[in-house]
Write a protein that binds this DNA or RNA. Structure first.
Lengths: 192, 192
DNA sequence: GTCTATAAAGCGATAGAC
DNA sequence: GTCTATCGCTTTATAGAC
């Protein structure tokens, strides 16, 4: 059987999933060694700072993914509508249509936030700013663009919670659909 | 100095806060003994099932509070508008205007949910049903009432996440304000 | 790089004195 | 009821062989 983990970067998706499932405190090194297939020796070789450095690296990886797949397209798409459609597609795929949670959101809810406050805050601020940029480009007022961007992120995060709480991923799917309709309506109706 | 904790029921608000701050896994017995001022002997006397029973009791206490202060008024208020206004007042007070999180929502996000799935699911289902009941009583269609109830809970949960992530409780306050306007509009415009 | 062995501390839980 | 002492286990982290 082929090796699953060959280098540090290969561990990050696995670590991300472990932190998602168990939270920062619940993600013990024994779970991490089991899931990555790496011994503690290798883990501490890759992440001398231990669990905290692992989570930091995971958050960085997530930010980089969203930057490339969501934020940059929103900022640079020739027409905002394309960027917005692409965002909702990427978000649906990323959160596995409601079966996967947002790590930054989960970390935010308890004292784990304090360890990673900068990364968590930057993630949401960047996301909100890129949605607002696209809406403003479509002709919305700054105030309206920022408000709708915030409402969109709130609904995405809330839908992820409710989908898991009620064990019904459809809560997420229909929320995303509604949001896309609303945001696109704001983007097109505001077009000069 | 007066004793803070005299009986089992007195520990529940303290335990709730500890679980909110640290999550279930992060809430160690040493933190719990420190915050309640009770030794392990007393804690295990009150909660023979240990931490799991403590969290179960806390979730029960929270459900009872919402039942009395939010759900029942929504169900029984003579006019739905009164119940809805009362809900938003109670919710704003309960979550300390965005400085406090929802324990059921936080538990839902990782594998802690599996331990308390029934309580977490029942909490949100009951809440959604009572909002939908009030809206239906005001003349909204069942479909519209249920959709708006779900959207309201989603936005409340999402706003709690974003408020903490961006360290800005105003995110929660303005979301609650917007939701109240929307829900009241739906309740009054639908009135026969 | 990767492993095993081990250290030192903390964990949840129990026992028993008072 | 409440405490302290203690059990057995797990935790994070390190050391050192390979």
């Amino acid at each position: 059987m082929a090796r699953l983990v060959a280098e540090r970067a290969d561990t990050l998706p696995v670590l991300a999933e472990v932190f998602r499932e168990h939270g920062f405190d619940g993600a013990s090194l024994s779970v991490i060694t089991e899931r990555t297939g790496l011994g503690k020796g290798s883990l501490y070789h890759f992440f001398p700072g231990g669990k905290e450095e692992m989570a930091e690296a995971v958050l960085g990886e997530i930010s980089a993914w969203f930057e490339a797949e969501v934020f940059a397209p929103l900022d640079t798409a020739l027409d905002p509508e394309t960027g917005i459609r692409r965002m909702f597609e990427a978000v649906d795929a990323y959160f596995h249509s409601g079966k996967r949670i947002c790590l930054a959101g989960a970390f935010a809810l308890n004292d784990t936030r304090d360890r990673f406050a900068d990364a968590v805050c930057a993630y949401f601020e960047r996301w909100a700013a890129s949605i607002a940029t696209a809406l403003a480009k479509a002709g919305a007022t700054t105030h309206r663009a920022e408000a709708l961007a915030e409402e969109t992120l709130i609904s995405i995060q809330g839908a992820l919670i409710l989908a898991r709480a009620m064990n019904d991923p459809l809560v997420f799917s229909r929320t995303l659909h509604r949001l896309q309709t609303d945001v696109l309506a704001a983007a097109t109706s505001a077009t000069p």
